[in-house]
Design a protein around this nucleic acid. Structure first.
Lengths: 190, 190
DNA sequence: CGCGTTTCCTAGAGCTTCTAGGATCCTACT
DNA sequence: AGTAGGATCCTAGAAGCTCTAGGAAACGCG
């Protein structure tokens, strides 16, 4: 009897795949063990909790998306960078809905700090290099941009825009125009 | 032995309260039954599923927030309306984190259509009366606004802005300024 | 009062989580 | 080669949650 070769990393990736297939809230230690041809109790040598497993998936997805966003940002500036970054978010959510749902988890401060969440902020900030924004407006813009991307993609994947006539793609590109215009014309502090 | 007086509505409200206390993902039929001093099997006369219970909470929260938003919007226009509406979202999420998390659930199309989700769109659209936007820019603006509110509040409650120096309240009001400026100066279709 | 409906119960099956303790495999050191 | 230690996997089992089936008790109405 050879071993199944389970590691924490492999486990996390399998959990992420499972999340994309059956939904993040249906990711379970038992189902994961079945996928590995292993009893569920065995997985507790690699993972403390069911909760820890989900946190691992969230952190993994955060890092994966940060990689994609960084790649999309390379060699681009201004509106090109903005659109490429935003599309990285949207495409990732479409391709990996379970992983994206995992990212919506609440992480406790220390794991959040250790995760790629900070990279997301830094990458969003990198977009602003093509625009003229100084602190503290820069931080405010980073937060608003991140919120807009995140919220738009969340609402779209949740089906929030389904019942409208207008095509979502057209709305999306219009939103990109609007955000670009906003960054070029950020209002002075009141 | 008198009856406990359980109805679907009372159940939903208790579930919403429970969600605010222990988190939406920890809302369980058993815990709810304990709260009513009743066996868990009894609740299945009122609710089909655990899933249906959660959907009920989501729909309930959606309606409750729509009521608040509508009240906040009454008698206001322009930026006043924008800020009041956005604050209704943010305050609700702070006051009722479990209910807000419930709203993030994916609803199947028919229940989503029957829910207050449409009212949210209409209320967001009402904000735009104070600005000069025609279709299809209006729909695009509604989606972007809704995304920004929703995303900002989600990220803030998830602790996404915790590690930054700048006060979130200041960033928030700056975001309001920015969105107001954007609506007053929406870019023409490209 | 009696009838049907609703609410609640007990009993139990099935799934998931997680712990305890034991067996087996791999690695590294002597 | 032999063996000690650690990592991986197992069985067994307790506890919680979901949900069904069938029965009893309360309630509402004619």
């Amino acid at each position: 009897m050879t071993r199944a070769g389970v590691t924490a990393a492999r486990l996390t990736e399998a959990a992420a795949d499972l999340a994309d297939e059956v939904g993040f809230e249906n990711v379970t230690v038992s189902a994961l063990a079945r996928g590995f041809g292993v009893k569920d109790a065995s997985l507790y040598s690699h993972v403390k909790n069911a909760h820890e497993l989900k946190v691992r998936v969230a952190v993994f997805a955060l890092a994966e998306l940060a990689d994609r966003a960084a790649a999309a940002l390379a060699g681009r500036a201004g509106k090109d960078a903005l659109v490429a970054f935003a599309n990285a978010y949207r495409d990732y959510a479409k391709e990996h809905p379970g992983r994206y749902a995992a990212m919506r988890m609440e992480l406790d401060p220390e794991t959040a700090a250790a995760s790629a969440a900070r990279r997301h902020s830094e990458l969003t900030r990198a977009i602003l290099r093509g625009y003229e924004l100084r602190e503290p407006a820069q931080t405010d813009a980073v937060r608003l941009l991140h919120s807009a991307f995140f919220g738009y993609v969340s609402l779209e994947t949740a089906g929030g825009f389904r019942h409208h006539a207008r095509e979502v793609d057209a709305s999306w590109s219009s939103a990109m125009d609007a955000l670009d215009a906003l960054l070029r014309n950020w209002p002075p502090a009141s």
